[in-house]
Design a protein around this nucleic acid. Structure first.
Lengths: 256, 256
DNA sequence: TGTGAATTTAATGTCAGACAATTAAAGTCC
DNA sequence: GGACTTTAATTGTCTGACATTAAATTCACA
């Protein structure tokens, strides 16, 4: 693990890669302690700040954790599901916002993935999952809700549906897809009538889940996707019409 | 963006978070240049090495890139799809290997997600996608292939199927799920008969895609999942039987 | 005047050495 | 034997310096 070509460019990146490969390749296992910074500096024949920069890169990816003190050091970190959630959400959110991904594309992907969970969720959902879905539906029907709160409840509803599949890997994958959509969803303003239709569709889905009817859940999600796409289209059309002549429609981007 | 509580712990992490929030929140936009390290050090009232550690954290997540020279500096990076792929694959691979996720769970998640693309892929796949699938099938049927090469071709086949959906967000999500499975798949040894069955199922899927029959693609994927699960089960059963009395079955972990 | 080479300049990359802060273990005293 | 003190090891941070890079500028020369 002491490969370091004479290429004197980005030493810290090379060191980080070497250690990362050792972790991914299983030569460093969970909770194992890495050599101290001084020892690593000696091994790689670089200075301690350079080693530290490499370790910070790994820490940023939750690959290691550090502990101070006598028996401290850098330890290979067990990548937990919550850590992985966070990374996935950050990555997905930035990916969508920086690459001019259209609402349509993101929405299609989100619902396609969610339909993947529908049969499993219908089969395995517990009473708890169903209760969570019902609770979110109830919240969404309250009149005073802000658009942000409505969207957040929407995410929570779908989260409950996905978690019903009882497959942590699926939940992890979907968390990114659903949450990354939220900034896009927050651009939409919901009229009372829009909300009523969405709540009705949510009720259809919850009922289907209660009946353990996977096909019906899938159908409900498809209907919800169509409704969402239509709603978004009308909102964006109205917005771009309003902006015509004022300033070029920027496509996306919040306009606080 | 100069929030820095007096909490004197992990200054570089705090600074990284502050800058990351500025990027995610849109206060720093793509290709915008950050202040120089010296200026950041002054703003945050820390030393330059501390600032550098923070910047390396961000660089590890592909949030910034740095350039040397007179007009150099740190620039907000456009997170590209390939960059996002890589991060997702690394994260997913580690998540699976470090959390004792069973083959069964991972496999189920993978095929569930893949089925999500099936209808779209059947509808939108081009002749190119189909040709890629056929080419991989042809490769898989060759006798001299190693297990690793067979698995790699399997990934390529499914990649072509997923890309057929023509939704980059879906492709991005699936890349992680499919590629992260590869280390688990590589633990399986395929007999000639196993391969023949898999190739036959791949042909069914390709034929269904050719006919643009989404339902048939979905059914083919389900059949493939069942086949894979069964195969894995028998391999693991045989392996654990062989190991009984020798050493405790470790569940996962490569044994090169 | 125009062009190409040399110089300057501003920035990151790296290094060396030092001190502060923290924490566990070893040692000491009652 | 238990509570307190000391010690040692390690990470966190700072200072100052030099090396390297690449763009901008200057300047000589045709």
């Amino acid at each position: 693990m002491k490969i370091d070509p004479s290429n004197p460019a980005d030493l810290s990146a090379q060191i980080a890669t070497a250690i990362r490969d050792a972790i991914v390749g299983g030569r460093l296992i969970v909770d194992q302690r890495l050599p101290s910074e001084a020892e690593l500096a000696e091994q790689f024949e670089v200075s301690r700040p350079t080693v530290r920069e490499a370790l910070k890169r790994l820490a940023a990816q939750s690959l290691i954790r550090t502990q101070r003190g006598a028996t401290g050091g850098a330890f290979v970190n067990r990548l937990s599901f919550p850590d992985a959630y966070d990374q996935q959400i950050t990555t997905s959110t930035l990916l969508l916002s920086m690459n001019a991904v259209s609402f349509e594309t993101a929405c299609e992907a989100r619902y396609a993935l969610e339909r993947a969970c529908a049969p499993l969720s219908a089969k395995r959902r517990t009473a708890d999952h169903l209760a969570n879905m019902r609770a979110e539906i109830h919240r969404q029907a309250q009149p005073g809700l802000t658009d942000e709160a409505f969207c957040a409840s929407d995410v929570a509803f779908h989260r409950a549906l996905v978690d019903g599949a009882a497959n942590p890997v699926l939940s992890y994958q979907l968390a990114g897809a659903v949450e990354a959509m939220q900034p896009l969803m927050n651009m939409i303003t919901f009229t009372a009538r829009d909300r009523a239709r969405i709540v009705a569709l949510h009720e259809d889905i919850a009922n289907a889940a209660e009946e353990r009817d996977g096909m019906a859940v899938t159908a409900g999600l498809s209907a919800l996707e169509a409704e969402t796409q239509e709603l978004a289209q009308s909102v964006f059309a109205a917005r771009s019409a309003r902006n015509t002549g004022k300033n070029e429609a920027s496509g996306l981007g919040p306009e606080k």
